[in-house]
């Protein structure tokens, strides 16, 4: 595994660059995940708001609802839930795709066709997940907040403008930046694990299924471990 990661870094900056393939992967991995990420983000914001309202009401701080919800979403729930869903969709997909390419010798066929399959398949996918997950998370956060705004408005009246003014008065850079950096690592881990499991798939169709499954399990676990580490690091750096 460490050799795989090392190989990634030694090849990512070296030509030839597979630009066309990279853009295609950004489209497949990023753009085609938008509906899923959007829907889950929306529901997350809405539900979270509805769930938090009774507790906040009992303390008499119902007015803080938008702020509480957006803090929770931006700092923790948005990145982690988005990453988990992304892992479920993308990591398994990459694991299965590369796994079946491996066992049907398509990877060997690329190699004899004058193509570095590691660059063509692995580097482009890992770059795409690393870049796309932060973007998807930011979009998901925004949609979540809209969901939360609707949740607030079920039993009360705030204009969308007022809602966002309230939110952005509290939310500052120190909330957004560490959370976004975190998603870069999440995205990298998800792509890397998917590719590693697929690329090293054992023979037979059974091996492909195992690769896809292991990719989701390992990358989901890694997301929480990275989450734990980054929270400690940002704490130490005083970014909170």
């Amino acid at each position: 595994m460490s050799r795989f990661v090392f190989r990634y870094f030694s090849e990512v900056f070296r030509p030839r660059y597979e630009v066309g393939q990279f853009i295609r992967q950004c489209y497949v991995i990023g753009y085609l995940s938008l509906p899923l990420i959007g829907i889950t983000g929306f529901i997350m914001g809405l539900v979270l708001t509805m769930q938090l309202r009774p507790s906040l009401m009992s303390y008499g701080v119902e007015a803080q609802l938008p702020v509480m919800v957006s803090l929770a979403i931006v700092r923790e729930i948005g990145p982690v839930i988005t990453a988990l869903i992304f892992a479920g969709k993308i990591s398994s997909g990459i694991g299965a795709e590369l796994g079946s390419m491996k066992v049907t010798e398509q990877i060997d066929a690329m190699e004899v066709s004058g193509t570095n399959p590691f660059k063509y398949l692995v580097v482009t996918r890992v770059l795409a997940t690393t870049l796309m997950l932060p973007v998807l998370t930011i979009l998901s956060d925004a949609i979540s907040m809209y969901g939360s705004y609707l949740g607030v408005n079920i039993k009360g009246h705030t204009s969308l403008q007022l809602y966002f003014i309230q939110v952005f008065q509290t939310l500052h850079f120190g909330d957004i930046l560490p959370a976004t950096i975190k998603t870069v690592f999440f995205g990298f881990a998800i792509g890397m694990i998917g590719c590693y499991k697929g690329y090293n798939s054992s023979k037979g169709t059974e091996g492909v299924g195992r690769s896809a499954n292991a990719a989701v399990v390992v990358s989901s676990l890694l997301i929480f471990i990275i989450d734990l580490i980054t929270v400690q690091v940002t704490d130490l750096l005083g970014l909170n």
């Binding site: 079946s100 010798e105 398509q106 060997d108 066929a109 690329m110 004899v112 066709s113 004058g114 193509t115």
Partner: peptide, 24 residues
């Protein structure tokens, strides 16, 4: 090299499969 399982790229059409080694 003709692979035992053919190893055709299943995400590409026949034309793209044939063009791949040429472009490369």
């Amino acid at each position: 090299f003709l692979f035992q399982g053919n190893a055709l790229y299943d995400s590409m059409t026949v034309r793209e499969n044939l063009e791949f080694p040429m472009r490369r």
